[in-house]
Design a protein around this nucleic acid. Structure first.
Lengths: 253, 253
DNA sequence: CGCACTTTTGACTGTGTTCAAGTCCTGTGG
DNA sequence: CCACAGGACTTGAACACAGTCAAAAGTGCG
């Protein structure tokens, strides 16, 4: 059942060492984590709401959204995970508390058993710390989304989301000004707390302002500075810039 | 400078053991944490935005808000901490990443040095786990706020916030239907992503609907069921109900 | 008593929603 | 290669909810 690792979790380790100092044995232990690969079709759940799961879901490919839902069935995305993201590391300490994960596109998931994650965290305190810090970045992103949705106008909210995604697909160094983003306008609406119709109009507005275009699921940012400034985007919260916030190893210093 | 503990952190320990299993020595170690008591006047910062702090802030008394701010100066609360809450435990692993903390009323803060928290977390893995889980609950609350602000109408957003606060001041067992809440309507506006004027009108609406009243900073909930249902409130995310989600000790099992 | 802040109310404006129809893509099967 | 079907996208018109501006009344503190 559990595939022996073939370095499939390397991107996860890379993500961790962006922000946390890990020794070679620690990295190897992480790479050696067992996992089970699985494919999830678009619109299908990765984990169900309220489900007590026994594994964390690493997004190897595709897009996965963390969704909340009101009683009336309205959906709100609380996170968008790109390929290379560990989606619900939080579930290691709180199996039931993450909400539902939904495949926004066809996605490849590596399920890593909680048991293995807990064992490795107990054995290497620095790994526990890195996991905790990883969750902290998720929380910071959530705060930013709340600020964005609570206080931004429609154009700003969309612009901010696109800025964030451009930074995250770009990875460590620079934001990408062009990238494939296989989200529908309805997904964007769910992420920004708007209606699909208004997403459409706001995208048109962004086009008219010559800030950015989305055509056929392809994002083209024409004026990064203006887009970031229009939306108040500041990449700091993503903690991708490793120079500002040096990699840390606090607990066992 | 650092007051020897006089069990001032007992409420913090109580909060932790609501959700995590801790042994007697672990609890004692937590109670023995050093801290420095300080008073902060209303509207004054507890920690400044972007500041790299060297201590976590326990709210001994008063109300403290975690605030985000847009370039144009609009404020958005991302958390409201009541007396007994540890406000920025997250800063232990990410000193710069918590955003600003603001005293919403006059508040008494116990500053606990990061160094001491890290030492205790390194020595007792179960405490590190409890800290991490504590942060996980904060994250779950953030997700709920995002859902609430992204998809609720004005009346529902306010109702939801009040339901949450009623549950949290009530503590472990039951929500309180009457309680003192020294927040201005402007604070409520900052927490729910509305304008103060609209908060006022929505409170009137809630009064007209005979769901709840706020008069002179005193909340009076007339119909809890209706209020909770109007706002889609479900206390699960707060993880106060210890029966559903049994106290855990995972890493060192 | 007076000042500053908070709450309340009114009238107006504007952003975003709703409902509905039509068009454009894209994948499928003949 | 084309016809078709189902999403996804686009647009329009009417409407509603929430924001803005402004002023008055209430509250609390020195």
């Amino acid at each position: 059942m559990l595939t022996p690792s073939e370095n499939g979790l390397k991107p996860f380790v890379d993500r961790l060492i962006l922000r946390s100092a890990l020794t070679e044995p620690e990295r190897e232990a992480l790479c050696a984590l067992p996992y089970q690969a699985m494919c999830v079709a678009a619109r299908h759940p990765v984990t169900r709401p309220g489900e007590i799961s026994h594994h964390a879901s690493f997004v190897a490919a595709g897009l996965v959204g963390r969704v909340g839902q009101t009683a009336s069935g309205q959906r709100q995305l609380t996170a968008i995970h790109l390929g290379g993201d560990m989606a619900d590391l939080l579930s290691v300490v709180r199996p039931g508390g993450v909400g539902a994960l939904l495949a926004l596109t066809e996605a490849t998931i590596f399920r890593v058993p909680h048991r293995a994650l807990r064992r490795i965290a107990a054995e290497y305190p620095a790994i526990a710390e890195a996991f905790w810090r990883h969750c902290a970045v998720d929380t910071a992103t959530l705060m930013q989304w709340l600020l964005n949705i609570g206080r931004g106008d429609a154009v700003g909210r969309l612009a901010h989301l696109i800025c964030e995604l451009a930074t995250r697909v770009g990875g460590e160094r620079e934001q990408r000004l062009q990238f494939h983003l296989p989200l529908t306008q309805e997904h964007l609406a769910d992420a920004t707390g708007m209606t699909p119709v208004h997403v459409n109009r706001s995208l048109r507005r962004l086009r008219e302002l010559k800030l950015m275009t989305i055509h056929r699921h392809y994002v083209d940012i024409h004026d990064w500075e203006a887009l970031a400034s229009r939306s108040g985007f500041d990449a700091d919260y993503l903690a991708f810039d490793t120079d500002e916030e040096p990699k840390v190893r606090l607990l066992t210093a």
